[in-house]
Design a binder for these strands. Structure first.
Lengths: 121, 121
DNA sequence: GATGAATATTGACAGTCGTCGATATACTCG
DNA sequence: CGAGTATATCGACGACTGTCAATATTCATC
């Protein structure tokens, strides 16, 4: 017993509203994807990731600090967000901490985002 | 007169800091990319875009309103953000307003984001 | 163990974001 | 014109974010 008309069956200007439009993704899924995008939605984090991507396994915090226009606590803050998300890992060597990208985690994230972007294009 | 050693030339645990790490993108570029990601970093916008993607040129605001768990002013707010960014367009027909994706704008945005994601993987 | 360096954490602050009720605007129909 | 509907805008509010100074922690060296 269908009581709503599919949107595709309707002409422009004819019968509007409540015709059964639903998102294909549940809100919970959308929130996960939104969190992925959110991590990337900051220019300092993008610059940090860029430096990490081009210096595999060899970047200590003070190098990162020199690469971006914010102070050390702020760099530490952004690195923590990326680390908590599993996208970078850190290794302490002596008094320094070296950061590196977690390429596998990035592949997963990229696949998720590409899936979204593909449907919109 | 090079006075900084490239990061790649250094061993782990040896000489740290100020070795010339720079982001390849300027801050201004990073801010543009971050704004792109930011637009996508919201679950309601993702759901709206999903409905628009699957109902080409035929979705009025009240249909969108029915598809997401927020009130009408909030839907209107998110649609405005997407419209201001050029990613959707609206057309008034009678008392209704129909929204549709701007596929070309999405191709541009996807290319920019894919470029970033590719370097990280 | 005191000193100094590298990094993390804390606490405060200003600014931004998402949300909604109320209201305004624009259109339709009687 | 008056009533009703669809959408946009306004104004307020709480929550979250980015930033930094100050402080804590950890390690190395003397």
């Amino acid at each position: 017993m269908p009581r709503t008309l599919a949107i595709m069956d309707r002409k422009l200007g004819e019968r509007c509203c409540d015709l059964g439009a639903r998102p294909s993704r549940a809100l919970a899924d959308a929130e996960v994807i939104a969190a992925d995008f959110d991590l990337m939605a900051n220019p300092i984090r993008l610059q940090l990731l860029d430096v990490l991507a081009r210096n595999e396994g060899r970047v200590c915090v003070c190098d990162l600090e020199a690469a971006v226009p914010v102070k050390q606590p702020t760099v530490s803050h952004h690195l923590r967000l990326l680390r908590d998300a599993g996208l970078v890992a850190s290794e302490k060597v002596g008094q320094w901490v070296y950061y590196r990208l977690q390429r596998a985690a990035w592949r997963d994230l990229r696949a998720r985002l590409a899936g979204v972007l593909d449907t919109l294009t």
